[in-house]
């Protein structure tokens, strides 16, 4: 099993993600420079968090045109697993691999805090290490994490079981007051139609070791690792 972690100018969670895969899980992992055009080697690709291209224009808008992204679209269309975390999620939306958009948080503040999220679908390559409805604790760190999609898309996401994670409290309550950033339906992460692409705002790689006060994020990487 070989993971590839994409590095854009401005990525800053690439090393954390690499560390978790290599040191915590002992998996094979390689960096992929954004100019790379061959992804044949890899069994799963991760777009890490950060501020690719300084967030110029719109978050993720410039990274979308990196040479590697054309290959990632091809890779995803052929069924390869692609995980986008935070800025990686924003890039996947701009690329069109996932529907909707991420706009500025409701309170116009950068949010850096622990949140709770509920696993809404545990039957995917990214979430099979969890039970459904399990409550996970991991941090968010973003300014543009307010998920927006029109009613038609939101209905499809619900109907097709494509909501991966929803913000909740420690007891699993998902009511509106718990939503940290204004996301529609409290959405924290979504899948594509075939559920081989996942985008999420919270950072599982920052909650994958005891020393970080939560290991709840490890399940995502474990799910990918043990899927075969």
């Amino acid at each position: 099993m070989k993971f590839g972690v994409v590095v854009f100018p401005g990525s800053n969670c690439d090393h954390d993600t690499y560390h978790v895969l290599k040191k915590v899980l002992g998996a094979g992992v390689f960096y992929i420079w954004h100019k790379e055009t061959s992804l044949r080697l890899f069994d799963a690709i991760i777009l890490p968090g950060g501020f690719s291209y300084g967030d110029y224009l719109r978050v993720g808008a410039v990274a979308r045109f990196s040479p590697v992204m054309k290959e990632i679209v091809k890779y995803a269309k052929e069924g390869g697993p692609v995980l986008g975390i935070c800025n990686g999620f924003q890039i996947l939306l701009e690329t069109g691999l996932l529907p909707g958009a991420l706009i500025a948080n409701d309170g116009l503040r950068f949010l850096c805090q622990d949140v709770y999220l509920k696993v809404k679908n545990s039957d995917t390559v990214f979430t099979n290490a969890y039970e459904k409805d399990r409550v996970l604790k991991m941090p968010i760190a973003h300014y543009s994490g307010n998920y927006f999609a029109n009613d038609e898309i939101l209905k499809r996401l619900h109907d097709e079981d494509r909501i991966a994670f929803q913000y909740c409290n420690a007891d699993g309550d998902e009511s509106d007051q718990i939503n940290p950033n204004g996301s529609k339906h409290g959405i924290a992460g979504i899948f594509n139609e075939n559920k081989n692409v996942l985008g999420m705002m919270p950072h599982p790689e920052r909650a994958a070791e005891k020393i970080l006060a939560s290991e709840d994020g490890l399940g995502i990487f474990k799910s990918l690792l043990e899927r075969n």
């Binding site: 224009l57 808008a61 045109f65 939306l93 958009a101 927006f148 999609a149």
Partner: peptide
């Protein structure tokens, strides 16, 4: 293509 995001 780039200057606007037609979704929003």
């Amino acid at each position: 293509k780039i200057l606007s995001n037609p979704v929003i």
